[in-house]
């Protein structure tokens, strides 16, 4: 990519070459990343005959937009969308509410065992869910919660995703303690400080947590697979699987249309809230 600089003009042209190479690599990479999306979109707009052609066609003719209504009506898609929406919204609320409160306790209050608890909490971030999936399944089965949304929602209210506690705690620590003191002198309780001072000041961090969790929940697969086995209860993520068949037997055009519909909320959220996503990832990585 580079050699030792010999003189100024050589240095300049090698600088240009370097620039050129950087852009070449970056653009190639971006194209490679984009191809699967483009191919999915393209396939979703093809007639069945066009799907199996060689060489592959990128721009379908005719553009079979009717694949979308067909795919969506071939399965109870509207129902699944609603199910996903309910699960995502309620559990995201639960996660943000419980994790922010717990994070406040870790960041701002002193209580016996706090530091030990925080260590354990960090440890649970490393703990694979799979270790507890069987007993958790049995627990919810005993409670009669199989084929309800409760197993997918209730744990969220108990700060089960420790990562968000960690994320919010890191953020709360950056808020000056004087804020609390002033409110305390005015007679506010700790809980009021949390509710009226810390939460309003932490909107960006709460947004990061909510968006990251909502995205995770929309994509969640193993949980719905285990707890929901009646098709009218499926989430979109779980329902997508019903399109999967053999390479030849699958209605690829319908499956890709369904897949696009599944991705749209994720991509929309991502583009409108990019800066939050990027913040979240960076906080989790750099401060971890």
């Amino acid at each position: 990519m580079t050699t030792l600089p010999a003189n100024r003009s050589f240095n300049q042209s090698s600088g240009q070459l370097k620039q050129f190479l950087i852009y070449a690599v970056l653009i190639t990479g971006a194209v490679v990343v984009a191809i699967p999306f483009a191919w999915t979109l393209s396939t979703s707009l093809k007639t069945p005959q066009q799907v199996f052609t060689f060489p592959p066609v990128w721009i379908p003719d005719p553009i079979a937009w009717w694949n979308y209504p067909e795919a969506l009506s071939s399965q109870p898609f509207g129902r699944w969308f609603l199910n996903s929406l309910v699960i995502v919204l309620v559990s995201t609320f639960g996660t943000v509410a419980s994790c922010s409160m717990v994070a406040f306790a870790f960041a701002r209050l002193r209580w016996p065992g706090r530091d030990l608890c925080f260590l354990i909490l960090l440890g649970t971030m490393m703990l694979p869910d799979q270790v507890t999936i069987i007993p958790t399944f049995i627990l919810f089965r005993e409670l009669g919660w199989v084929n309800t949304f409760l197993p997918l929602i209730v744990p969220a209210f108990f700060a089960r995703n420790a990562f968000y506690v960690f994320l919010l705690r890191q953020f709360f620590m950056t808020i000056p303690l004087e804020m609390d003191d002033a409110a305390r002198l005015d007679g506010a309780s700790h809980f009021q400080v949390y509710l009226h001072i810390i939460l309003p000041m932490s909107k960006p961090a709460l947004a990061v947590a909510a968006l990251m969790f909502a995205q995770f929940k929309w994509n969640e697969f193993l949980g719905p697979l285990i707890f929901l086995n009646r098709s009218e209860l499926y989430t979109v993520a779980l329902g997508l699987r019903t399109f999967v068949g053999q390479e030849y037997g699958t209605d690829w055009h319908l499956m890709m249309a369904a897949n696009i519909v599944f991705m749209i909320p994720l991509i929309l959220i991502f583009f409108f809230a990019q800066k939050y996503f990027i913040q979240g990832v960076v906080i989790s990585g750099v401060k971890g």
Binding site: M101, L109, C117, T124
Partner: peptide, 23 residues
């Protein structure tokens, strides 16, 4: 402060016992 702390951390403490330690 200690009491409030434990109370506010209790969702996680309960969740940890019920959904992690117990299982």
């Amino acid at each position: 402060e200690a009491i409030t702390g434990v109370l506010m951390a209790s969702p996680w403490i309960i969740g940890f016992l019920v959904f992690v330690v117990g299982p």
